[in-house]
Design a protein around this nucleic acid. Structure first.
Lengths: 123, 123
DNA sequence: CCTTGACCTGGAGCCTGCTCCAGGTGCGAT
DNA sequence: ATCGCACCTGGAGCAGGCTCCAGGTCAAGG
């Protein structure tokens, strides 16, 4: 069984050490194992979970909703439909975000063209 | 000349009244005109500016950078190249955001498929 | 007139999501 | 042994971006 030190997890997930501890405190991670000396010892599973959290965070899911997801996960296989729903809704949120970004980008590009035409009146 | 009341601007821009006042305070809006009685009286120009701000905010530009943009705007036509640069950079930021969202969405969709397969083992 | 609802100001408060201390311990290398 | 660095805990602090409040004013309809 392979374990990861906090520092390794920082490197692999991009979360800061403080953020890892914070996530543990608020319940986004459950019961990280410890060495005899009291240091955290992350498993492969912990790591995968963290990578999923990273995905969700980076795609804009609020922590409150991630907590909901954690809760469901603790509820066993019966909650899979709910988890699925949660992820599907988030997936749609991402679509919306992308659409909004693109629409705003259109406007901004119009503005950019406007400025360019002011710089080079001909052509 | 057409003017807009605060309430109309709220409706047209989607910013709350408090946000409008806040933006004025921190300098994102310059000197909004007033009626005899002291109420704000937005011009068409103010409105267009606000709509641009909305675009920038909604596409993730931090307020500090919008302030930089305002400053440049106050600097007259000489700052057009700088403004152009700022917008072009932001435009690229948006591209990056979209790319990141897509990448994260891929992962999430993989997870979704995984859950689906758990629900319907066959087919 | 009077009421009522939109608006005014200054300043405090709030929510999210971390981030930073202070003071102490574990442990691999020299 | 002991140095030094990674790590520990509890709790405070911070940045960004609004949002709310109290106490007052303006103005249009009845």
């Amino acid at each position: 069984m392979t374990f990861y030190s906090p520092g390794q997890v920082v490197d692999k997930t991009g979360f800061s050490l403080d953020t890892l501890r914070y996530y543990e405190r608020i319940g986004l991670l459950q019961e990280i194992g410890r060495t005899a000396g009291g240091r955290r010892r992350f498993t492969e599973t912990d790591l995968l979970w963290l990578l999923l959290l990273r995905c969700l965070r980076d795609s804009g899911m609020p922590i409150a909703q991630m907590l909901r997801f954690v809760e469901l996960t603790r509820g066993g296989d019966d909650t899979i439909p709910d988890r699925l729903t949660l992820l599907e809704e988030h997936d749609q949120q991402i679509d919306k975000q992308i659409a909004r970004l693109r629409a705003n980008q259109q406007q901004i590009q119009t503005k950019i063209r406007h400025y360019r035409s002011k710089l080079q009146p001909d052509r």
